[in-house]
């Protein structure tokens, strides 16, 4: 362990770990919420509840926007390498 600790940039390693968890799980959470809320919006619309449908579509739009921002951030990381 000591040998590894001396040759690894531990700061970069911990950054990779926490950013990976935050971004990886966050992206999946946002996309899953977008899918689930879009599905619920469809159910509400078919049930005649227009207000509820609009609210769920709003949630869908916000979550989709989060995903788009994540993708743009990913491309930016590649460009700034």
């Amino acid at each position: 362990m000591t040998v590894f600790a001396s040759v690894i940039d531990t700061g970069a390693l911990f950054e990779v770990i926490w950013v990976s968890f935050a971004a990886g799980v966050g992206l999946t959470l946002a996309f899953s919420l977008a899918i689930a809320s879009a599905s619920r919006a469809g159910q509400q619309r078919r049930g005649g509840t227009l207000g509820g449908a609009i609210a769920w579509w709003l949630v869908t739009a916000i979550c989709a926007m989060v995903c788009v921002v994540a993708v743009v951030a990913g491309v930016t990381v590649m460009l700034s390498k």
């Binding site: 940039d9 970069a12 390693l13 950054e15 990779v16 950013v19 990976s20 971004a23 990886g24 992206l27 999946t28 996309f31 899953s32 994540a70 990913g74 990381v77 590649m78 390498k81």
Partner: peptide
Amino acid sequence: AAQGFSAQGAGATVILAATHAGFPL
């Protein structure tokens, strides 16, 4: 499909996080 998305999403974010931190994976 959910597993496929999770695998690809996690893979992409880990690679990009490593790229950003300068840690080669």
